[in-house]
Write a protein that binds this DNA or RNA. Sequence first.
DNA 1: GAATCGCGTATTGTTGACAATCTACAGTTA
DNA 2: TAACTGTAGATTGTCAACAATACGCGATTC
Lengths: 230, 230
Amino acid sequence: MAAPEGMFVLEGRPTAQLIADQLRELIVQGAFSPGQQVNESALASQLNTSRGPLREALQRLCQEGILVSKRNRGVFVLELSTQDVKEIYAVREAVELAAANTLLDSDPEHVADTCRELKGIIRNMAKQVAASDWQAIARLDMQFHTAFVSGTGNTRLIRIYETLAAESRMCILSLEVAYPRIDALVQEHQMILDLLEARDRGGLQQAIKRHMQKAVEDLTASPEATGITA
Amino acid sequence: MAAPEGMFVLEGRPTAQLIADQLRELIVQGAFSPGQQVNESALASQLNTSRGPLREALQRLCQEGILVSKRNRGVFVLELSTQDVKEIYAVREAVELAAANTLLDSDPEHVADTCRELKGIIRNMAKQVAASDWQAIARLDMQFHTAFVSGTGNTRLIRIYETLAAESRMCILSLEVAYPRIDALVQEHQMILDLLEARDRGGLQQAIKRHMQKAVEDLTASPEATGITA
DNA sequence: GAATCGCGTATTGTTGACAATCTACAGTTA
DNA sequence: TAACTGTAGATTGTCAACAATACGCGATTC
């Protein structure tokens, strides 16, 4: 029996995950300042739920790494150090390089589909760059890379990357206006897209490496101007 | 003030993690059959704890991927498909290649330390191969690779790999006596170690790729003989 | 005879209360 | 004045009871 259109399973996913998704979005948008303690009771009341589910959500975010838990103290919003930035982008490079190889080994038509999606994201990104909307730029930046990795269809790789994407958004957020050249952002993504379309394996790998390297340089260049601690 | 010898912090880590570690070890050792439901109340009683902490531990293992949660149904032990095996080893390859590059870029003395550790693990592995103790072999196999990745010092990479290691042990476990050539295991690891010591970047990368590729072939070769579903 | 409906049971999901622990501050003493 | 000790407050960690949901089986109907 096919379900009628417009019908969908209500609350199909576990509640804790819904809360976690909501909180993650709030955190990466900077609704909580780094190092700030997250109060269980208070948040539970605000979200109109009990401490149980909320606790599970917090624990989930702890495991993802955007919150840190201290025994008998509570959970705190992650404070990013330059070391953290280096780690995050090193792992991102590893994942994206693997994704690039997998993509180039896969069906050309599927690659074309992915390229179409990426192209649309770049278009939106250019718009937001013109509007200087940093929130949106950070979101689209990670949307681009997440779509790139999603193209592999490897659910584990995708899951890993989603965590990295959240952490990266926190990095980018603390960057804000400190970002040196706003136009380079669109250009670099466009280059990655072009090389993927051209199926230039070596060039794509180099472009990804450069993209990550530049990001680390930008993010660690002036730590005193950002929220990133040395 | 230096703490007197013999003193240590009591139960410094969160309880849920202790339970999770214990359960993870049981699962990767095959104490639960794939697809089997894990009963919260029963386990809580057995482990002499309440459902709260146990629930958190289960959720943690769900996020790691060795348990799967179904809403209002409970959690079940992961059933590995050939697709899962391919995914796991694709991600492992990505992580280990990145680890290899990072290691070869790091301090030679530190690499030497890592090599010493790996050498010891290989020695133990050879012993267990002689004794045909599959449990121990699987444990040492993953211990080797985990030590390799740990050499990078990248905490995020290490955390990712620990999850992959757990899943891999489940793969290897279902392999058991079906493993084709028991000697190749020690040889392949020895080769990786040698190439790392020789600082042969290209050779090491190739060796890692081959190692992963062979593992997938072995694991997916005779699915009917193993617990891995098509 | 096959499909459907309804009930019973088992299990999870949620809640609120209780216990344990830590930090901060004030009081005390050398 | 500086360092230590004890208390107060707040927050998390744990627990047991309650509510909601899904599955399996038997009765019923066409």
